[in-house]
């Protein structure tokens, strides 16, 4: 009985310690909600734009998917889209998804140097080269492979299933049509046939701005 009274007394004398400041919460929430209200852009369109920006940037640099951020902010009644895309490294020239390396060329080179040696090339070598190429392109574009997780039994991808990934894969497929017209050499772009319909009819269940977490999640899984 005495203890609550004393603690109450102390609280009234010294203030109630750590008071969470709801003022900061309301300001933060308002800034976000007003940015969206003022832009009057529907979440589907916003998400498509986001995916396309990532796809374009990814052609030139490797983006850190775990910490990328898209946000809308307003200041003085003007809305700005801010994309924060941390760059891991610049893509080596000629190794982007639009300029796939041809393993055949390497083989041809050896043939030219010495036909006898070329004959000695066995299937194993060719297969090793192909695998190296696939590993290369996959490493450069990890997120492009997510939709293939069910198709090929790659050890990298075995763990990647679930709705997060499929949403990402759909959206990614939708952007890749635009970017890879006439250049679908790499099988990473196989999804483009299905994606035409997706472009015309954006799937309503694509969430608004929650994809950064989803992509980060997918990446973490595929890293295992």
């Amino acid at each position: 009985m005495a203890i609550p009274i004393i603690s109450d007394l102390l609280e009234r004398l010294f203030g109630s310690g750590e008071d969470p400041h709801s003022r900061d919460d309301v300001k933060r929430r308002l800034q976000i909600v007003l940015a969206h209200d003022r832009l009057a852009l529907d979440p589907q369109t916003l998400e498509m734009m986001r995916q396309e920006i990532i796809a374009v940037v990814s052609r030139y640099v490797e983006v850190d998917f775990e910490s990328l951020e898209f946000s809308l902010a307003t200041n003085e009644r003007v809305t700005a889209l801010t994309a924060n895309l941390p760059i891991r490294r610049i893509r080596p020239l000629g190794r982007g998804p639009d300029q796939p390396i041809m393993p055949e060329q390497e083989v041809e080179k050896i043939e030219l140097a010495s036909p006898a040696e070329a004959l000695a090339l066995d299937a194993q070598d060719a297969e090793a080269a192909l695998r190296r190429f696939e590993a290369n392109t996959r490493d450069a574009h990890p997120y492009l492979d997510i939709d293939r997780s069910g198709l090929d039994e790659d050890e990298d991808e075995s763990g990647t299933t679930g709705t997060n990934n499929s949403v990402l894969a759909e959206a990614e497929a939708a952007t890749s049509t635009d970017l890879a017209v006439g250049e679908s050499v790499d099988d990473s772009f196989r999804a483009s046939d299905d994606s035409v319909a997706l472009l015309e009819e954006p799937t309503p269940e694509i969430p608004d701005m929650s994809i950064p977490e989803a992509s980060a999640h997918a990446k973490m899984q595929s890293d295992k």
């Binding site: 008071d19 400041h21 709801s22 003022r23 900061d24 309301v26 300001k27």
Partner: peptide, 10 residues
């Protein structure tokens, strides 16, 4: 003052 309401400036 207790940071539980937006100020005029906010």
């Amino acid at each position: 003052a207790a940071e539980q309401m937006m100020s005029v400036k906010d």
